Amino acid sequence: MIGLTVLIAIPLYYVVISTFKTQADMSASPFGLPAEWRLENYATLLMSGSIWQSFLNTLIVTVISVFLQVVVGSMAAYGMILRNSRLTAAIGAIMLIAFCIPMQATLIPLYQMEARLGLVNSLTGLIIIYLGGAIFSYFLIVGYMRKLPMELLEAARIDGAGPWRIYLSIVLPLIRPILTTVIVFQTLATWNDFVWPNLLLSSSDRRTVVLQVYNAMGQFTTDWPQFMTVTVVALIPVFIFYVVCQRWIVAGLVAGSVKG
């Protein structure tokens, strides 16, 4: 564990410590402490409107995408366990095949579809692409739902509750641990994604945070302290989110693994 911690800590230390340096300081002593602790890099970045716009774009895309992924994935899982038939089995097989196809194989077809619909260079088009992550949500949720006591659902049905009432009042509260896990995983994946924003978004006012980090590198020269500062600022929300939610991640992963 110590070795693994050191392996992870060294690059993180280098990134963080570089944000307090000038370009000359980084060249003279890459891993050394700065001769003078400077906050100019953070001040310059935070005074720029582009970073705040990038945060807003990323927040909009992440919140809407994850919400839709969880809703669609949980509803699909609920429909799958509610009625077993050849149709649902066939649909499950199709989703399994789709889940196994690597993302790289679908980049060009999906881009062409978005271009024909006029969704390229828009946050709406990016959200629609991320909606495909509902398949991952479905596979996590359906395995958890199969462990639910079907007698409880049958009792609610006998009492006159319809499918929607059972879903909203019984199923969703019971699967809250796995829903939390899915939300955390999908939030981190969506927030940190680079491929789709880089492929679909071209306007500077629609960039996500990860694209903002990428565009901090110049074509011929790069202000490395400023680049490291953008990287740290982009990591802070993800770090805080993970620290706050880590206990729910563990709870969701182990929930249902032990009976009794």
Rank of each mutant, 00 (worst) to 15 (best):
D193F: 00
I170H: 09
I101V: 15
I175Y: 04
I101T: 02
G92I: 08
G73N: 03
V120F: 03
N121E: 06
V72N: 01
I170M: 10
V71M: 13
G118Y: 09
R176W: 12
R83C: 06
R176Q: 11
E154M: 12
L201M: 12
R116C: 03
I128P: 07
M75P: 05
A98T: 09
S137N: 15
I91E: 06
F136R: 00
L126N: 02
M75T: 12
E154H: 14
L152S: 02
R176E: 10
A161F: 11
I127E: 05
P177F: 10
Y138C: 05
L110A: 12
A98F: 13
I178P: 00
N192S: 10
W191L: 00
A77L: 08
F139V: 01
P197T: 02
P197G: 04
R83F: 15
F139T: 01
L168W: 15
L117T: 05
T106N: 08
I135E: 00
Y111M: 13
N84S: 15
L119A: 08
E154N: 12
L82P: 00
G79W: 04
V195H: 04
Y111K: 14
G125Q: 08
G143V: 07
V71A: 09
P197D: 02
A156I: 10
A93V: 13
M113R: 10
R176D: 03
L148S: 05
D159M: 05
N192E: 01
L123S: 05
F99D: 07
I129Y: 03
L188W: 04
M80R: 14
K147I: 09
R86A: 12
I94Y: 15
G92P: 01
M95W: 12
I135C: 03
I108W: 03
A76V: 12
T187S: 10
G125A: 08
R157A: 14
W196E: 01
I127C: 07
F99V: 05
V72R: 02
Q112M: 14
L152E: 05
P173C: 06
L96I: 10
W191M: 00
I183A: 11
T190C: 06
F136E: 00
Q104I: 08
S122I: 11
I129T: 14
T187N: 02
A134F: 11
Q112N: 13
F194W: 04
I101M: 09
A105P: 03
G92C: 07
V171I: 13
A98I: 10
T187A: 03
V71L: 14
L152Q: 08
E151T: 12
Y144E: 00
A76D: 01
A93D: 08
T88A: 08
A155S: 12
L82T: 12
A98M: 14
V142N: 00
I178A: 07
L168E: 09
S85I: 11
P163M: 06
Y167P: 00
L110E: 13
A90W: 11
Y167G: 01
M103C: 06
R176A: 13
A76E: 02
A93R: 09
I128D: 08
A76Q: 06
W191R: 01
T190V: 14
S122A: 07
A189C: 05
M75D: 04
P163R: 04
L87M: 14
V71I: 14
L148M: 11
L82K: 14
Q112W: 07
N198L: 06
T187G: 04
R176K: 15
I166Q: 09
Q112L: 15
I135P: 01
F136C: 00
I170T: 11
I183F: 12
R165F: 08
A90D: 02
D159F: 08
